[in-house]
Amino acid sequence: MTAAPVVLLATCAEVADLDADSRALADALRARGADVRPAVWDAEVDWAAADLVVVRSTWDYVPRREEYLAWAARVAAVTRLENPPDLLRWSTDKAYLEDLRAAGLPVVPSAVLAPGDGGDHPFLGVEHVVKPTVSAGSKDTLRLGADAEGARRSADHVLALHAEGRTALVQPYLAAVDDDGETAVVCADGEVVHAVRKGPLLERGGGRVEGLFAEENISARTAAEAELEVARAALDVVRGRTGRAPLYARVDLLPSEDGPVLLELELAEPSLFLDVTPGAADAVAAAVLRRVAG
């Protein structure tokens, strides 16, 4: 009798028993005969006992990114880790957006300000967003106005991030999201699984997010063909880096006058919203077990 494949879903201590998204994946995997267990990434775990470790809700890594990446390298040395360490390193710093732009993808205009660059940037005259390049769950992300108060708060926030040794990313706020929302295209093993609408998250003039992540308003959505084209192009960039499609990916897109533009390519610990669309968890579970098989 063949032993059930052991799949560990890496999470963080605050959601040690997994969130609804990962529980849906775990249930789908168990229905296919897998031995699935949650595992807190920075706890004592026998990672080598797993046939596959899938990174899921490891949302507390941001203040300890290098420790997190070192953990990923250790796990990958003793078993299979998806997504692999090189993708985790690349995608956990939003400077990767410049790589996507250079590859010809439509990306939200961005300015990257490293410590020492000061607080001025090209978007002080328009409504805009300031966030750290290394962040998750909209933590430390502010939506700021085009007025003098917005400019003052913007520069202060950039400088505050610099004081913490962090690099800031500044982008114009695309107001169409207030009505249309974001489109998140979820992919597994290079294929589109489903899409969701993410409601507008940031309030103008609001403060920093408290807690592990900002609560989101999620509903099922059918992605437009233009959105699917951008998502597929983003996956092609990943294939060009690694030679293979990532096990999982989420491509976040915003509406603009020129068509969809890419806000983020999530390859580390994205919510996949598998509890929103019937069959989505099954599709991702099938992709996971294909990786176990090789």
Rank of each mutant, 00 (worst) to 15 (best):
L9C: 14
P255K: 04
V186N: 05
P122Q: 10
L8H: 15
R74E: 09
A214Y: 00
G207T: 05
R37T: 13
A231T: 12
A4T: 04
A114I: 04
R143N: 12
G125S: 11
F123N: 07
V40K: 03
D258V: 03
V177D: 00
A176L: 04
D178I: 00
V129N: 09
A155R: 15
D180A: 14
A13N: 13
L247Q: 05
E210D: 14
A50T: 02
A184S: 14
A77D: 13
V230D: 03
P106S: 09
L144G: 05
L267N: 02
V54R: 02
A283I: 07
L87Q: 10
P172A: 12
V62G: 00
E66A: 11
R80P: 07
R290M: 07
V62C: 01
V185D: 06
G206M: 11
L263W: 00
G259V: 05
K139A: 14
A220K: 03
R80L: 15
G119C: 10
E44M: 05
R23F: 10
T133K: 07
Y61I: 04
F123D: 08
D19I: 14
L25S: 13
D258Y: 01
N83C: 00
K198P: 01
R221V: 06
D180L: 13
P246Q: 10
R221A: 08
A249F: 04
W41Y: 11
S135F: 06
L97P: 03
R291D: 09
P278I: 07
F123Q: 05
A231D: 06
V112G: 00
H194K: 03
V177A: 01
A28E: 07
L87V: 09
L265A: 14
A293C: 03
A214K: 08
D51L: 08
L52A: 00
A103G: 12
G118N: 10
V6P: 00
A195I: 06
L113W: 15
P5Y: 08
T167M: 00
